[in-house]
Design a protein around this nucleic acid. Sequence first.
RNA 1: GCUCUCGUAGCUCAAACGGAUAGAGCAACAGACUUCUAAUCUGUAGGUUAUAGGUUCGAGUCCUAUCGAGAGCGCCA
Length: 594
Amino acid sequence: MARTIRTRAATGAAGSIGDSLRIYFSRPHPQAGMPSMDVRDSITDAVRSVLADLGVDPLPAIVQLERPGNPDHGDWSTNVALASAKAAGRNPRELGTQLAECLLAAPPAHVVGVEVAGPGFVNFRLTDSWLHEVLADVVAAGVHGWARHDDGAGTRVIVEFVSANPTGPLHAGHGRGACYGDSVARLYDRCGYDVVREFYINDRGLQMQNFAASLAARAAGRDVPEDGYHGQYIADWAAEMVAETSDGSGGAVDPMEWGYARALASHRSVMESLSIDFDSWFSERSMIASGAIDETLAALRAAGAVYEEGGAVWLRSTDHGDDKDRVLVKSDGEPTYLMPDVAYHRDKFGRADRLVNVFGADHHGYVARMHAAMALLGHDPAELEIAITQLVSLQRDGREVRLSKRTGEMVELAEVVDEVGADAVRFTYLLLSVDSPQTFDLDLVASQVNENPVFYVQYAHARIHQIVRRADEAGFGRGALADVDLSLLSHPRELEVLRALHELPDIVARGCREQAPHQVTTWVRDLASSFHGFYHDCRVLGEGIEPALTVARLWLVEGARIGLAVALDLLGVGAPTEMWREDQAGGHSEGEGA
RNA sequence: GCUCUCGUAGCUCAAACGGAUAGAGCAACAGACUUCUAAUCUGUAGGUUAUAGGUUCGAGUCCUAUCGAGAGCGCCA
């Protein structure tokens, strides 16, 4: 029995996050100032310096600091004694002991204990003040600045994804690549890269002719040709086409051009419904007009990268790791699908320093030849990164639904979005690593909308806004951060939220490096969990709560809000300010922003 | 047959460079609403990380083999 859900929020759109907040409280004005040094840097610096004093040579290139899972092992831990013992010719446990003694003699900021444990781990115990400093950094950076990096400054990257043929609507399988690609682009953006989201349109070739023939046949009341497209949408679109032509203009319509425009409009519409905004729609045809294809072939010839055999032109892709050489131009003079694709990637390299392609698993065989082609054109194949998303299988009524435009049966992405909502669709697609195949059970997702983890996370955000609204009504302001005693935040629940916030910059950097937005999903679920725990155990407002504590907790809440907003934005999921179930009395509708 | 991606709790999945006792959610069981929203929280139970070797202080992670799953192997796109 599905309960419907009503969510009041500005949904999805990048940049919308936070806009609605101004309704409830004045913007924070934390003291301007440099963010404090990350506690890990001060510790690793101290470790390096002590190691040098102890005569360890060579010094390890990196001093790895990690948060132990076991609280008995302290707040931070390093394996540097284990890692460098061999090279230094030392016993790891003894080296660790010396390291710990020296560090304790002159401890880095916040450090109150250093112990050696196990085979030679060095564990650091810190005062909670390091976490209070994290909170100050978070609120000073705000939604815009927290977990933002500049590693990519000056590097242009083109993320190409979806790129489905304009021969029919996008199906549910495309949704995964779409949400993934967009989120990867958001990660690049947050890491300082100059990002372009691009959709490559295969708008010429055999499949377009088959598509046109299918539309024409249906429009004329004939059966679709054997090698045509058989989906129901062909009949629907053909009817639309007929309706338009009989509408007075009387002019004959070219089914290919009409269908092309129809399909593209369909693509744009569903992408928009998911808040995916392509910067560029790149047409294959445009490369014929521009001569880019001929130029590319000439460049390959000049590089000695092609040869002729049997009347066809072959690419020497085996020179760079491919299984076999590939035909670029068939013996009848027609280019294969590969030819324009190579030209397209050559074009992209003219516009960017780094290319990211998102392919479905059914195209993984394509990777080797594309890399080979780029190498033959003189590019570094490593600058073309190809992310493979494993396939999505759809289930409805307990059986698998084939996702093929050629067969009649398919589930359109637009249907899925209508059924479960854009936020749930995006979150669901981004829930797991794209290395795992995903089963999207439509009945399950539709019936369990309430259990979808997206609402768990969004609810945390909504709760925050209700707290702030109540605080506002009660006349509580956060005041200036400098006047607040953050050391009052000492409850385990409070510290847990702060620890989670500290992780976000790492998660963003790693998620970008590994093109793994699901790490953001995992993190934000964890933050939401910490926040719900805090909410349950630590009241912000009420009798018996010292005003100073209320204010400190309001700042903690603000920090959590920033973390949730940043992560949800990276996922392209809306951050609602309130959520009410159908069966609840409903909230306060006054004061709602536009 | 060859290539690629995978195999973790009953189910769906996490697990940064190789790190200490492999974590969540769902499902099951037992609890918590006079409270800033219970769409929440707490507890219990659940594991030979497919199998067998190897590398080393240390392996879910790296190497080899086997078994199993998916995908790809066209002068189609």
